[in-house]
Amino acid sequence: MPRLFTAIEIPEEVGSGLTLLRGGISGARWINPEFYHVTLRFVGDVDDALARDIAQMLGQVRRKAFDVVLDGLDQFGGHKPRAVFASVKANTALLELQAEHERIMQRLGLSPERTYKPHVTLARLRDASTRQVADYLALRGLYRSTPFHVPRFVLYSSRDSVGGGPYIVEAEYPLT
């Protein structure tokens, strides 16, 4: 039973820049650069028949390629930080692509996802102090990537784990 999600990949040069942001938070589990991505839609564990239907429906998506910029760092978890991430600058093309993925998944019977916040997870945190995370964000929070082109999206599979990979590209879908 595969665990699936759709995403856009982060180019190697942008990933290299993100690796320079590593360090400064005790106990952080930093994501390997080859696993950096912007999730479009988490699908979850599905049977093989539904996985095939998802792959087929995603093949019908017709969208134009677009550019993305990572703009700023933040954290999820509030007073109990659980992840540090790079934010994606507001982007209509990205939001429209994600909304189409959401509609496809709901048509196939999956429950709606929570509010979408495009980001690249940099580290997962366990028992990190709010002070350390605040200091980290104060020092590095103004990060901004160069714009990068998004020529495709992918369907990833992952093993059931605590996150961060390994991810396997099951299918790729070009954007025109």
Rank of each mutant, 00 (worst) to 15 (best):
G24M: 04
G24S: 00
S26F: 15
G27V: 04
A28Q: 05
R29G: 06
W30M: 01
I31V: 04
I31Q: 11
I31F: 10
N32E: 12
E34K: 05
F35A: 08
F35H: 14
F35C: 13
Y36C: 06
V38T: 07
L40G: 06
V43Y: 12
G44W: 09
D45K: 11
V46I: 07
D47N: 03
D47Q: 07
D48M: 10
A49P: 11
L50M: 08
L50T: 10
A51Q: 01
A55T: 08
M57G: 12
M57N: 14
L58R: 00
V61L: 07
R62D: 06
R63V: 09
R63G: 12
R63W: 06
K64L: 03
F66L: 02
D67M: 08
V68H: 09
V69L: 03
L70A: 05
D71H: 06
D71I: 00
Q75D: 14
F76I: 02
F76D: 04
G77E: 09
H79T: 14
K80N: 13
K80I: 13
K80M: 12
P81S: 10
R82M: 02
F85D: 04
A86N: 05
A86Y: 11
A86E: 06
V88M: 07
A90W: 15
N91G: 03
N91D: 03
T92K: 11
A93S: 11
L94A: 01
L95Q: 12
L95R: 15
Q98G: 07
